[in-house]
Design a protein around this nucleic acid. Structure first.
Lengths: 143, 143
DNA sequence: CTCAATGCAAACTATTTGCATTCGA
DNA sequence: TCGAATGCAAATAGTTTGCATTGAG
């Protein structure tokens, strides 16, 4: 089931409405590079849909997160970012503190060890955040 | 070298001043439970030092982070938290999403795997953030 | 038709800053 | 003495909300 379908069904199930703005935002959201902030997406959208409001973008992204097709990221720079969430493929992030480059990584062994840690403390994990901050290859070279 | 010494030397080296407020904040910071927000510490301090200002607490905590005796935490609840940093003993956090309980954990194998991931992408890691969110034993029981 | 969604502006919250005054070295 | 630190109030920045109007079902 793709993200558009998930969203449409969520909207219908909750008695919400499937507006043209929401569809526009969803398309742009899925089509853009990942890891953008609300503001980024807002300005991207404004290029083709000048009348769309910031609050609508914000509320729609929240809605995406709510229905499970987006996840919220916070890299500690004061901006909430979003990325399309593929349920089958969890990943974490490397963030370059110099140029802002974001790289995704997966490491099943870390996931497994996390489970063990949680079990050890009797925690029932719902989600986690794992980010590695540092210099990417390019920035390390230059400095 | 203990944290008070580290701080004092940092202050001297930078030509800053060792005020009574800073000493008071440092003592309270080291003596309190960990993982509090600026606001928490501010109100704690107000009990005994009613004239201290929020901005002073804020700036002093930043200074602690700067000189390496505190680390800033962000558990995504909109509040920056701080904890005394023991240089020899890095740890990450389990956070209960229901009651707010925070538990520290260390897992050397995860640290090692992180290094490998970073190496694989040619990143030079400066720091990382690893948090597991879920229900603690107590809260899981009740729900 | 009805009620959710939109767009605008205003409210909010945590954080940060400007500045006159105080105080440590 | 002199510049750093303080405390207050105001500014900032990202996020969220209220409300009159619009529009989907």
């Amino acid at each position: 089931m793709d993200q558009v379908t998930i969203f449409s069904e969520y909207v219908r199930r909750k008695g919400l409405k499937n507006t043209s703005q929401r569809m526009t935002i969803l398309e742009t959201f899925l089509g853009s590079k990942s890891h953008f902030s609300t503001e980024d997406l807002y300005f991207e959208l404004r290029k083709k849909h000048p009348k769309i409001g910031y609050a609508t973008v914000h509320r729609t992204l929240k809605l995406f997160a709510e229905c499970g097709i987006a996840s919220e990221l916070d890299f500690g720079d004061g901006q909430t970012r979003f990325e399309p969430l593929d349920l089958n493929q969890h990943h974490d992030h490397l963030v370059c503190t110099h140029c802002g480059l974001i790289v995704e990584f997966t490491e099943p062994q870390i996931e497994k060890l996390q489970e063990q840690v949680a079990a050890q403390y009797n925690f029932k994990i719902e989600r986690h955040r794992h980010e590695l901050y540092g210099l990417c290859a390019n920035c390390a070279k230059q400095s």
